[in-house]
Write a protein that binds this DNA or RNA. Structure first.
Lengths: 211, 211
DNA sequence: TGCAAGTTTTACCAGCTGGTAAAGTTTCTT
DNA sequence: AAGAAACTTTACCAGCTGGTAAAACTTGCA
């Protein structure tokens, strides 16, 4: 039974698509959706615009794929649950460290996401509802169990996550401002380490999770 | 001695300019600089594009003015110093409350600023260096004095501000995501109150500033 | 080898972009 | 009332936008 609609994509095609997606992520991160032209993405990928359109038939199509890659990556790496037997302190510090590593290693992805959400998440909305929301509810439920078990103080689980997200994402999204105020041409590993230890300390002490 | 270059701007002109600036702020917040067309701003302001160009001769011009208004407002309201005799706990909680009020009352301004910084602050850079940086250095210096006086634990003053900024700004910039996860059509006063008390508690306990 | 599928290039376009030029209209001042 | 200054409208445009159509080239495989 040979398939007609869906052929196996060749290795070359996969490689070319990945190349385009990487370029698109960078340009979208810097200019947002409306500010990004197909031409500029193609140039960044080193191919002609028309050839790129062969791989991604429309701009919105391309943008969707970029967003989906980002969210897949994040949700995969940011599962709070997994080892739910671990103690709050180590789980939270691992979570913070993990999110900061994402900001460090995928700053473009973070900015594309930021652009999208600031603009009201017109395209991401469905995906957020179907994928992020359930995970968020599992994670906040776990935090509530911690509270009931007396492992941490009675705090608002939702806002706990909002602050952790904001405090980690800022090192990707607002990097230009932070660099400027730290008088550095770029954020270094030591800055991420300082951010991680500061944030972890603040949060753990703030919710009474130390010791 | 009558002036030729600078005439007194009429009340009508000031009003019209303000009207345009308000509209521009909203559109820039939603679409970013490149994604915003002069036409769409004019439409939002209820006048013709050509007439708007009479008041703001170019798009960049208009954008600069919007940014400047925002920064002026923020720096004016966000001086950490002023009453430097106050105790750390009350100063920090007032600061957090003030910044959250800005997020609540001027969400568009916050988003325009976010767009600009994410894009590398190409236009804001000079202004940040000349206005934000000095204030930042005064504020971090004050925090260092608190540490030396034993009023708070020895923490990293820079990262303290980064976290406070991120944790307050997120309620403007990422409002769509937060609304979605809270299952609310819009953020209410109670949400800002919850955010304020959570953030304040976390930060004050985190740096040992309570009591 | 042949030839079909996959890929790249060339040519093109309608619509929107920021901006100019200038004519027309209203408002202010004397 | 009249003239000037301030304001608004009409007409226009060159360049860029996302996207289409199709010709030309390359590759994998019978």
């Amino acid at each position: 039974m040979t398939e007609k609609t869906t052929r196996k994509p060749s290795a070359a095609r996969i490689q070319q698509e990945a190349r385009i997606l990487r370029a698109a992520e960078e340009v979208f991160a810097q200019k947002g959706f409306s500010g990004t032209s197909m031409d500029s993405v193609a140039e960044a990928a080193g191919i002609s615009k028309q050839n790129m359109i062969y791989y991604f038939s429309s701009k919105e199509n391309l943008y969707r794929r970029v967003l989906q890659n980002i969210l897949d990556l994040w949700l995969e790496k940011m599962s709070f649950i997994e080892d739910s037997s671990a103690e709050p302190a180590e789980m939270i510090s691992a979570y913070i460290r993990g999110k900061l590593e994402l900001s460090r290693d995928y700053p473009f992805a973070s900015r594309v996401f930021a652009h999208e959400v600031i603009n009201g998440a017109p395209i991401l909305k469905e995906y957020l509802i179907s994928h992020l929301q359930p995970q968020f509810e599992r994670d906040t439920a776990l935090v509530r169990r911690w509270i009931e078990a007396g492992k941490i103080d009675p705090i608002d689980p939702e806002h706990l996550f909002f602050v952790i997200w904001a405090g980690t994402q800022t090192y990707a999204d607002f990097a230009p401002q932070i660099q400027l105020l730290l008088n550095k041409p770029a954020l270094e590993q030591s800055d991420f380490d300082a951010a991680a230890s500061f944030l972890t300390q603040i949060v753990l002490r703030g919710i009474g999770a130390e010791h």
